[in-house]
Design a protein around this nucleic acid. Structure first.
Lengths: 340, 340
DNA sequence: CTTGGCACTCGGACGCGGGGAGTGCCAGTC
DNA sequence: GACTGGCACTCCCCGCGTCCGAGTGCCAAG
């Protein structure tokens, strides 16, 4: 069947182009792959593929290069996620296993991912909004200042300082701490406003203004804090890319990477449990039109905490990268579940 | 006096080269600066300057470019730190003033610095070792697990999870918390080991193994935790640089920037209160031989917490950059002092 | 010490031609 | 109808020679 061979040709073009970084011609193709036909035949297929928009030539009489559409077909139909080798898995396990604390887990993860994929790695901190409260601590700093420390079940810690309208006694603070925790400990952060709404009414009127002030800060920390944090590593890998990968320069890409808010939206799209790929122009952000994103959610089974993934040139080893991203996400989820 | 004019010439060369990014010739020099002499005279001076190693020519019959040594002389003797304009100061104040919490302060600072200098900005988190303990919190997660949360007077929070050898009761935890805080609260972290050494002996023998385990983790968090954190912004600014600025590519520079440990050592050198400049080859790290670092310490008066600064090409506006770095450091110190 | 003049050097831009990789098309074969 | 060999064509890349101009170093004179 002819259609089948055409797809074989596309696959071969993608694979060759990814590994050689040079437009691939019909002759080289039959030499490197056992296609069983002559270059002339391949040329016909290539003309058809070009007609359909899967490949293109940088200039007349040059080889072909996959288009975004070509990569898309390759990722969707022509390739499968490549599992990591046993040594690689062990290396991941060993490297992540030694982590102490959430910060350390996240930092190690992002470096590992950057090294494994040789791309720019991005890891989102476990999101506050999807976590549950583990403990809320109130620390009196002075008579009129309190530090609020929120600990989530993903191990994340947030703190705020509150200036109180009046003086607060240490015992009151202890009581408040107990009341807060009784109401929200173990509950998802999103439920907190509802659970805490009646709190000021339950305390003595004298300290009510203080309680209201603290409550406001707690709610702000819990809910309004959408400033999700991300960490990044491997930006140097971008500079390895050639002029072919990023026609203009890597400048717009670096700029896009600095807009963490944008990145988060892109990564958030990853369909939670599966590896998601966004290729070149599919990308909503202008600066990333020459780049691809491979991302996935991670977290304990059933409840993804956040996303992680990589950003690289559209010309990348998708099967391998997807395998690495998936594997790392799984291990991180596991580690967090164990230590959480 | 001839020596004076030679220095004027060097200053003019540095200024012109920084602004035009092109080797500067004798003719252009007399046109742009009122030196009061002819190009031929300038040529003699330039020859002398080259002889002494302050400038060099990329190739015969090209203009001159400052060497690292030339920049060094310029920074030390021929320029003064340029104070920011009033609007700039107000902008800084406004931008940093709106910060909530330490993370926010640090993040805003690094972005501000990157924008102000148009270079890569680096900010070190307030160092643990130079801070004092504000509060130590022990949170029971389960019967045999405790989370240790350490809060320093710079607002930084560190947490660890401890697996206990035995079961611990909630009251014991409360007592321990009180004992810990009584001993170390308000004291520099560095003093903690000494202050806590006798703690296990002071508690009931039944819970001694647990106390020992917790103590070990606390000490680890307090002291051994040299993994100082840094944040970075503005890496995209590197890509603005031309091939002249980074002869090879920006790759080694980006790589060096990823080695946070190396960066920290470099920034740590900054003589605490004053702005420190390290130019090109002066830099111990190979990858940064084509880059310059402008850094300074920041913190409350008398006790610097940590360092911040920028990394850029040797061809940079030193007076302006030094002014920005100094101004930002001062404001951050101020903000931290207020909220601390 | 400064200056104008002058020969010299060298890199960058431009134009040109050959070589080669790769293509599209066509006619012939199975 | 699918495949193949042959062939003309296109266009990039590379090396070469040329030209131009900016900038220099040197020298002799003021």
């Amino acid at each position: 069947m002819v259609e089948d061979r055409k797809l074989d040709v596309l696959r071969a073009i993608v694979e060759d182009y990814v590994s050689t970084n040079e437009p691939v011609g019909s002759k080289a193709l039959v030499e490197r792959h056992r296609l069983g036909v002559s270059p002339a035949t391949i040329r016909n297929d290539m003309a058809a593929l070009e007609e359909e928009g899967y490949i293109t030539q940088p200039h007349t009489s040059a080889g072909r290069v996959p288009t975004d559409k070509g990569y898309r077909l390759f990722v969707d139909k022509l390739s499968s996620v490549k599992p990591l080798s046993a040594p690689e898995r062990r290396a991941i396990e060993g490297f992540l296993g030694g982590a102490v604390g959430l910060d350390d887990v996240v930092n190690r993860t992002v470096r590992l991912l950057a090294q494994l994929t040789r791309q720019v790695a991005v890891v989102q901190y476990p999101s506050l909004s999807r976590s549950a409260v583990r403990h809320l601590e109130l620390v009196g700093l002075s008579e009129t200042r309190v530090m609020v420390v929120l600990i989530t079940d993903s191990g994340r810690v947030e703190q705020r300082i509150v200036e109180l309208p009046g003086v607060v006694a240490e015992e009151d603070l202890g009581e408040l701490r107990a009341r807060f925790n009784a109401r929200i400990s173990g509950h998802p952060l999103a439920d907190a406003p509802m659970l805490l709404a009646a709190l000021p009414d339950a305390v003595a009127p004298e300290i009510r203004p203080n309680v209201t002030a603290i409550l406001a800060t707690v709610l702000e920390t819990l809910v309004e804090h959408v400033d999700e944090r991300v960490v990044m590593a491997g930006t140097a890998n971008l500079a390895r890319s050639t002029a072919l990968d990023f026609p203009g320069s890597i400048h717009p890409v670096l700029e896009a990477l600095e807009e963490h808010v944008v990145l988060l939206r892109l990564f958030g799209e990853s369909g939670d449990r599966d590896v998601h790929v966004s290729i070149g122009g599919e990308n909503p952000h202008e600066g990333l039109h020459t780049a691809s994103i491979v991302s996935t959610g991670y977290g304990t089974e059933g409840t993804p905490f956040a996303s992680l993934g990589i950003v690289g040139p559209t010309r990348m080893d998708y099967p391998g990268t997807m395998g690495a991203v998936r594997a790392v996400a799984r291990y991180v989820g596991q580690i967090l579940a164990e230590s959480g």
